[in-house]
């Protein structure tokens, strides 16, 4: 399977920050009505790396992504995104920072009163980009997720999987430096899931985008750790066993509001923790 080329194939180099990290969580806690959801979470996402986020339903994965985006605020702790301290910024300051980050919501969250192309173009229109330039980039972005034919449709006319892909097109159209995916393959068939995994891998390997990817399918994350995107062939290829350590892919597991694992595929496979063993088996 192959994916078409992205807008102009312009290389958006991951901006190196003084710290070298795209996202840092430092002792972050949040509770909803006395119910502690995240309890002292700390981790770092190095630039150009993709980190898969696991945890049972309700473990706070979606909350974590919204915290990173500054959509909700933690009760305590610090969150740093692209070198800026999200937790100390006002909503108005955040709007600018968010322009450099793309997010795919769990339920897609497309604007249902706008057509597919208007959804994808939303950010570009906000930035007052010329109409023909917008059309070009929207078409290319939709081509990237193989949904050009939906250009003039409304989100309500699409299937769940198509909506998810439109949401991905909307997130990547502005070439963000960081991408946050909330269960991009959730509830999709293996074929569509694979396409999406490949898209995410392409973002990682070709555009060097830093990303957090929430997922329920361990399978997807393992594929991402054992394959890389070949730009020439324009599809993902398996990496020989000996070289897998070099893939910028890591895993993080949440349980009862804490991080119980944060490391790469080898470390995960070698883990002796019973819960983790059960989780990955």
């Amino acid at each position: 399977m192959s994916t078409p080329a992205l807008p102009g194939e312009q290389q958006v180099a991951a901006t190196a920050h003084s710290s070298g990290y795209a996202i840092e969580f430092d002792n972050v806690s949040i509770a909803f009505d006395e119910k502690v959801v995240l309890d002292g979470i700390s981790f770092k996402l190095p630039c150009a790396e993709t980190k898969a986020l696991f945890g049972v339903a309700g473990s706070g994965k979606s909350v974590l992504l919204k915290l990173a985006m500054g959509l909700i605020r933690p009760d305590s702790g610090r969150i740093i995104m692209l070198g800026e301290e999200v937790t100390r910024m006002t909503e108005r300051e955040l709007f600018e920072l968010r322009g450099r980050v793309g997010i795919v919501f769990q339920e897609s969250a497309l604007f249902d009163s706008l057509k597919v192309w208007e959804n994808v173009a939303f950010r570009l229109m906000e930035n007052k980009i010329a109409p023909d330039e917008i059309e070009r980039r929207v078409r290319e972005s939709l081509k990237f997720v193989e949904l050009e034919q939906t250009y003039d449709m409304f989100p309500s006319e699409l299937s769940g999987g198509m909506r998810r892909r439109v949401a991905i097109a909307r997130a990547i159209v502005s070439h963000p430096e960081v991408l946050l995916y909330d269960s991009p393959t959730g509830g999709l068939d293996p074929v569509t899931s694979n396409t999406i995994v490949e898209l995410i891998m392409k973002q990682r390997d070709v555009y060097k985008t830093s990303a957090l990817m929430v997922t329920h399918r361990l399978q997807d994350a393992f594929t991402m750790a054992s394959h890389e995107f070949d730009k020439k062939k324009n599809e993902m290829v398996a990496i020989p066993k000996g070289q897998r350590g070099e893939v910028p892919m890591s895993f993080l597991i949440l349980k009862d509001g804490k991080v119980i694992f944060d490391g790469d595929a080898q470390q995960l496979a070698a883990s002796r923790d019973e819960y983790i063993r059960e989780y990955i088996s």
Partner: peptide
Amino acid sequence: TEQIDAMRALGTD
């Protein structure tokens, strides 16, 4: 349906 969050996430007030 999280469309308001999506709007904020896209950098629009």
